[in-house]
Simulated assay, not measured.
Amino acid sequence: MPLPLGLADVTNPSMVPTLVPGDRMVLRYRARIRRGDVVVVRHPFRHDLLIVKRAAERRDEGWWVLGDNPYVPNDSREFGVVPDELVVARAVLRLRGPGDVQRSPLAIARWLLGAVRPLSSRSRRLRAR
């Protein structure tokens, strides 16, 4: 049986500041989802499109998901509740690429300290919208 882990690239700014375009995520498939988790879901109107959002609230029909960036409205405010069968995975780690890191030892040390960050439900407080 294959491990229930995978990698995904972030290409959209909807989760800024938690995730920025160019970040990678380590995903855990078939993971239990809790309020506050960062999740990958299939878009309810375009099942071929995977999107990254925060599971904000559990409802009878599924999950109410929101992006961390209030200026990108492509979330449950636009398309409603995401049914459970469209939840693909929970993001467990953020991997930040080196980007434009300068080659000084201090710059490299700063990048190393922030390059890998857990994405738990306790890593960020939810804000009401």
Rank of each mutant, 00 (worst) to 15 (best):
D60I: 03
V72Y: 14
V101I: 10
V81A: 11
G97S: 12
V101D: 00
I108E: 00
S120R: 12
R90L: 09
L7K: 07
R59Y: 02
G22E: 13
E85N: 14
P17S: 01
G36Q: 01
N74A: 15
L49M: 05
E61Q: 13
L93R: 07
R96L: 01
S123N: 10
G80N: 08
M15W: 07
P13L: 10
W63C: 02
R54D: 01
W111R: 09
M1W: 02
V41L: 13
L50M: 00
V10S: 01
D60P: 12
R90D: 12
L93F: 06
V38R: 06
Y71V: 14
F45E: 10
D68I: 14
G114P: 01
L86C: 13
E85G: 11
R42V: 08
T18S: 10
V26Y: 11
P70H: 09
I51T: 11
D60S: 11
R24F: 11
Y29G: 03
D9Q: 06
L19S: 01
G67A: 09
R125S: 02
L27H: 01
N12Q: 13
R77T: 14
F45R: 07
A128L: 02
V88I: 00
L86E: 07
D23P: 04
D60F: 00
P105D: 13
V116Q: 06
A107W: 02
P105F: 04
L119V: 09
M15Y: 06
D68F: 08
V40T: 04
A56N: 02
R122F: 10
A55C: 06
R32V: 14
P118S: 03
V65H: 03
L66K: 14
V39P: 04
R58W: 00
T11M: 02
V26H: 01
L50K: 04
L86N: 15
Q102W: 11
G22P: 05
D37H: 07
V82P: 03
R34Y: 13
P44G: 08
L106D: 07
D100T: 09
V16R: 08
R46N: 12
L3K: 15
V20W: 06
R103Q: 01
T18V: 12
R110V: 10
P13Y: 11
P2V: 10
V88Q: 01
L5H: 03
M1A: 12
V87W: 02
V39Y: 05
N74T: 13
R96W: 05
G67Y: 08
G114F: 09
P73T: 12
V81M: 04
P4H: 01
G80M: 05
W63K: 02
R103C: 04
M15P: 00
G114N: 03
N74I: 14
V81P: 11
N74H: 15
